[in-house]
């Protein structure tokens, strides 16, 4: 039993790492008042660029860096369109996703070695190895947590840091103010435009790390289905975490390994229709949204979405 739990936990953490990065990034972006539906496209771009760099240079650090630069640039496009040009955030985000899907697929078939017909699919590159913490890493349960790749270890650190930054620092307070009430924030002397730019780009970089984790650690290599819709689950997880980076871990643990869990249940002879399990994250998210909204309406307590989420900010708008 302990063995099964350990192995379930191990795969869930590993599968959830990419989600965790992207979710935390998106929480920060949404907290500043910008909805970014381009996560799926950014994760795909992060995956394909990081894999290509790792394949040619053998440098994982460089691979990660390039992935972050590329997705930061994509986020910058989103920021420019939605913040400066005041474009609709939903439409801009969707465009980014369609663009990212197309471009990653294109690059995946052009960046590869000539011997493989320029295809990146089917070649092997360097990837992040699992690092076992000595001694403790052998114990049941602990071996699941302490037998992961370096990006997962960093993720462990990022959760409390992201929480601390948002709730315990001046900058975090400013960020939340910008997302709640940009006009007041501006009056308090916060540069709303700059804040939104910064956190949108940071969110994009995190999505890039998420994509890179898929291509360099979780399922090493490139394929067009590598994200498997994770970018959309991220949007759901942000809601599930109630825009609190500290709670992002819960959703990723619940839904990160949903496929892996379903396969294990099958192997153990349990019969739950796979489709039902796959539907779960989306259904639960709708339910969570309803409950959050109702709770806010009646409880008068603010826990849900930042009030200014999705709304362009105009300095001298009447």
């Amino acid at each position: 039993m302990i063995g099964l739990i350990t192995s379930l936990l191990a795969i869930t953490i590993s599968a959830g790492t990419s989600l965790l990065y992207a979710t935390i990034g998106e929480i920060y972006t949404e907290r500043s008042g910008i909805l970014n539906l381009g996560i799926e496209g950014m994760m795909l771009m992060g995956a394909v660029t990081s894999f290509a760099v790792s394949y040619y240079t053998n440098s994982l650090f460089l691979a990660l860096l390039i992935a972050m630069v590329v997705t930061a640039f994509m986020a910058l496009i989103h920021a420019f369109l939605t913040i400066t040009m005041k474009a609709n955030q939903v439409v801009s985000g969707l465009s980014i996703t369609i663009f990212g899907t197309g471009l990653s697929s294109f690059l995946g078939k052009r960046l590869g070695p000539e011997s493989n017909n320029f295809n990146l699919y089917g070649v092997n590159g360097k990837n992040f190895p699992d690092i076992q913490v000595p001694l403790v890493g052998d114990w049941p349960i602990f071996s699941a947590i302490l037998n992961q790749d370096i990006l997962t270890y960093i993720a462990y650190l990022i959760i409390p840091l992201a929480w601390f930054f948002m709730y315990k620092t001046k900058k975090g307070l400013n960020l939340r103010a910008v997302g709640e009430n940009p006009r007041t924030a501006e009056a308090m002397g916060i540069n709303v435009i700059r804040t939104r730019y910064i956190y949108t780009v940071i969110g994009g970089m995190f999505a890039g790390i998420g994509g890179a984790h898929l291509a360099l650690a979780y399922t090493p290599g490139w394929n067009e289905h590598i994200t498997g819709g994770r970018g959309w689950i991220v949007i759901a997880l942000v809601i599930f975490a109630m825009w609190n980076p500290g709670k992002a871990i819960l959703g990723t643990l619940l839904f990160g390994g949903i496929n892996a869990i379903q396969f294990r249940l099958q192997a153990a002879g349990t019969d739950i229709p796979a489709s039902l399990l796959n539907m779960l994250p989306y259904l639960v998210t709708v339910l969570a949204l309803v409950l959050l909204t109702v709770y806010e309406n009646y409880g008068k307590r603010k826990i849900g979405a930042p009030s200014a989420l999705g709304k362009p900010y105009m300095k001298e708008d009447k």
């Binding site: 369109l81 663009f99 899907t101 471009l103």
Partner: peptide
């Protein structure tokens, strides 16, 4: 790659937006 179609489709809105 036929993904060029998708690529153009995603790009088409950027100038518009």
């Amino acid at each position: 790659p036929s993904a060029i179609g998708l690529l153009l489709q995603g790009m088409i809105l950027f100038p518009l937006l």
